[in-house]
Design a protein around this nucleic acid. Structure first.
Lengths: 258, 258
DNA sequence: AATGATGGTTCAAATAATGAGCCAAAAAAA
DNA sequence: TTTTTTTGGCTCATTATTTGAACCATCATT
């Protein structure tokens, strides 16, 4: 792997649950030598991507990331635009709502809102979602670039639960259904006992740039509530798309075929 | 420079004004070879730090940054906590308000709010502020770790304008004045015609982790307005500190001496 | 058709990264 | 207290990665 890749992989060891780590810990988790790890950390710290607690000597993600993220958001206000809709959905459905962004062939969870109830679906910020077994993934494929969709369907489809769709033809059907309906549905495709719906948010060229999803425990889901959530998610995704592109949803959507 | 440093320096070429760049452009601005530049970009893109517009082939900052920034913010909600206070200050002062964060011995501008008027002070997101010649820098030094303050005072003090304080003893006096008053004042120390006030935001250990500043054109500033802005900025910084640490400001503040 | 951009690629030479082993200091254990 | 273990940090000969001149393909302009 490139040195740059190694350095970045160190950053990816940090998460909501482990926001601070010691040198030895980082070295062990990354698999790199302690000296190498430290050198990489120092390089990252030089640019504010990592900072070290001066007293505990633990490392954590640095402010340089916040700065660059804001520059990106200024050009591409994906999260900012979506936030109010996520909040509204979280209130109206009282279930977990999460926003994902396409990032080199995967879906990256950029934001999550959990309901204040004991039995809920937990989605971790920063989690990578498989394209074939989540509502988000299917919604994304329904509006992905032809090439992306093909390669996703051609790959071996890992079974996460007994309900995961592993037959490419079935998956294709689900993707088409999502395309027609405006939202996708996943019944325990990724985790047992979880039912999700999702809709794609489109970029100016008509292809999906991310997805908005509602995930609920199966016990609170039947076909009526699922459809209700689906419609709500689809409506929100449509509005976000319009805000981002400044054009009517149908106009944007039909651009993907040209 | 380390390869990692080179890669990150590519990211730093992007700004609010130039959010998208072509390969040749990036190579020219960074000074690296085109092949090298591309290899670095690909490494960065592999981790979502850079993404390439599939049609225009321009590069821009990627969603991976947003994700990591959110992980940091979850642990360290500096920006999020400060935002409402910045907004309020922007309204009440009708001048430029900016928030900076300490990042390896420098102050990094993380957020800026500009007033909607023609004659205003422009501060760029992502800008690095010198410690000795800006209100932010002085406020920071007033609450910095002893070692940091010493080394800042020991360094040669560059003169940005005719008004920049370059005498260490005078600077020391300004820092002490800021410490006593609760906010710092800079009269054209960094740019001609600009008067600023700033206050430090403290971390749990009582040392400054960032600063909040109001910058205004000299023509709209006299000692009364300056004091008014100073008090406002100091009050906001105090409240942000309390929100972040969950303790009374005085308690936090006195911890820095132990 | 020629020109001058652009993005992207190759491979021997040059350079930077690597990691075993060392040190000092701080915790943890005796 | 003293001893042991663990931690962060550092060095330098070996090794693997990075580098960049030269190259190609494509597109827009002349």
């Amino acid at each position: 792997m490139s040195t740059v890749g190694k350095a970045i992989s160190l950053l990816e060891l940090f998460s909501i649950d482990t926001p601070e780590l010691g040198l030895t810990d980082i070295a062990r988790r990354s698999g790199y030598d302690k000296a190498t790890t430290r050198r990489l950390l120092v390089s990252l710290a030089d640019h504010g991507f990592i900072e070290q607690d001066p007293v505990a000597r633990l490392y954590r993600l640095g402010p340089g990331l916040t700065r660059l993220a804001r520059i990106r958001e200024a050009r591409f206000p994906f999260l900012q635009t979506s936030l109010p809709y996520i909040r509204e959905l979280a209130v109206s459905t009282a279930e977990t709502v999460h926003l994902s962004e396409a990032s080199n062939g995967s879906l990256l969870t950029v934001y999550v809102e959990h309901p204040a109830r004991a039995n809920r679906v937990n989605v971790n910020l920063g989690e990578l979602l498989p394209l074939h077994s989540t509502a988000s993934g299917i919604a994304f494929l329904a509006h992905a670039r032809e090439l992306v969709r093909r390669s996703a369907l051609a790959q071996p489809l890992a079974a996460f639960t007994a309900h995961t769709v592993t037959d490419p033809a079935l998956l294709q059907a689900q993707v088409e259904a999502a395309s027609g309906r405006g939202y996708s549905v996943s019944d325990q495709g990724y985790e047992d006992g979880v039912a999700s719906v999702a809709a794609a948010i489109l970029g100016a060229d008509g292809h999906a740039i991310g997805t908005l999803a509602v995930a609920a425990p199966l016990v609170r889901t039947d076909s009526a509530t699922s459809a209700e959530r689906g419609e709500a998610v689809a409506a929100a995704a449509r509005e976000i798309t319009e805000k981002l592109t400044g054009e009517r949803y149908e106009t944007v959507r039909h651009r993907s075929s040209t």
